[in-house]
């Protein structure tokens, strides 16, 4: 017969094994992927936003410069949590409002009636009859955008500072040899910028990792949600009754985050020494983009 057929008869390890593989636990394990997905999508987007923001702030074109400065300084002055709560709702309403205008042009009533935001059925995002995964993906996408906006601004600040930290003489030399502005930027300025940006970006990555439980705040079924859900005491009503085990579940999350940040620290240390511009202390370390030793 099946291994976990009747939980009430199971004992010890076998009970635990069956308990830890219930469908709900499998959802819990899957939710770790949500965290990784958030990190994997957000990190590159944050870097692009960071570069964009920093370049905008350094731009010769005044409106672009103002936009970049506005973006980076605005986000810096607002608590993260406010942003995380505000952005998804604002975006959601914005999208629904736009769809409302396009799909239901015949409705002339204002979308704000009293204190309520009402759009026609066809404008709902996602549509109310969509599958659960569509709803989940939509709210996850909104969360990614909120994370990217906030952390993009921080990254922009870091990269802006790092770009300014590169000695002017290094760039002037490139120009003196006839390199174009673009070549100077990508071949000299950016490669040298890393050494100044990495400490800040490393810090930012740690903060990003530690901010991932905010997904829970946005109503996404992430690891915090499942830890609370599964850890709470279960009466005899449930297949696997147990007292309040939230302590253990949260302990598991704690260890998970600790491992993740520890590993990240290791990787960033490696990167920092790789992009270091001072090679005098360690002559034998791996070279940055070494030229193959062709004769």
């Amino acid at each position: 017969m099946e291994y976990c057929a009747d939980p009430s008869t199971l004992e010890g390890l076998r009970w635990l094994a069956c308990y830890l593989t219930t469908p709900k636990h499998q959802l819990f394990y899957l939710s770790f992927l949500t965290v990784f997905a958030l990190l994997a999508i957000t990190a590159p987007v944050v870097m692009i936003m960071g570069f964009g923001g920093a370049i905008a702030r350094k731009s010769q074109i005044a409106p672009l410069r103002w936009l970049g400065t506005l973006y980076t300084s605005m986000v810096r002055g607002v608590p993260d949590i406010i942003f995380f709560l505000f952005v998804p709702i604002a975006l959601d309403q914005l999208v629904e409002y736009a769809r409302h205008k396009i799909k239901c042009p015949h409705i002339t009533d204002p979308v704000y009636r009293g204190s309520e935001f009402i759009v026609c059925e066809a404008a709902k995002m996602p549509l109310s009859d969509s599958a659960a995964w569509v709803h989940n993906t939509w709210s996850f996408a909104l969360a990614v955008i909120a994370f990217s906006l906030v952390f993009g601004a921080f990254a922009a600040n870091t990269i802006f500072g790092a770009l300014n930290a590169v000695p002017h003489s290094q760039l002037e030399t490139a120009r003196a040899f006839g390199l174009t502005e673009k070549q100077t930027f990508w071949r000299i300025h950016v490669p040298q910028m890393w050494t100044y940006a990495l400490p800040g970006l490393s810090n930012l990555w740690m903060i990003l990792i530690k901010a991932t439980p905010l997904l829970f705040l946005l109503g996404i079924e992430d690891i915090v949600y499942w830890a609370r859900e599964l850890g709470g005491s279960k009466t005899g009503y449930f297949q696997y009754p147990h007292p309040d085990w939230r302590l253990w579940y949260f302990l598991a999350l704690l260890v998970f985050y600790l491992l993740l940040t520890w590993l990240s620290g290791k990787i960033f240390n490696r990167l920092t020494s790789r992009y270091s511009l001072d090679h005098s202390s360690n002559p034998t370390k791996p070279l940055l983009k070494p030229i193959e030793a062709g004769r």
């Binding site: 290094q170 002037e172 030399t173 490139a174 040899f177 490669p191 070279l287 030229i291």
Partner: peptide, 18 residues
Amino acid sequence: RANLSMVFQQFNLWAHMT
């Protein structure tokens, strides 16, 4: 500029390159 190479007081070798 490509035809008038400059040598600087502080050398200004690009630090990230061999």
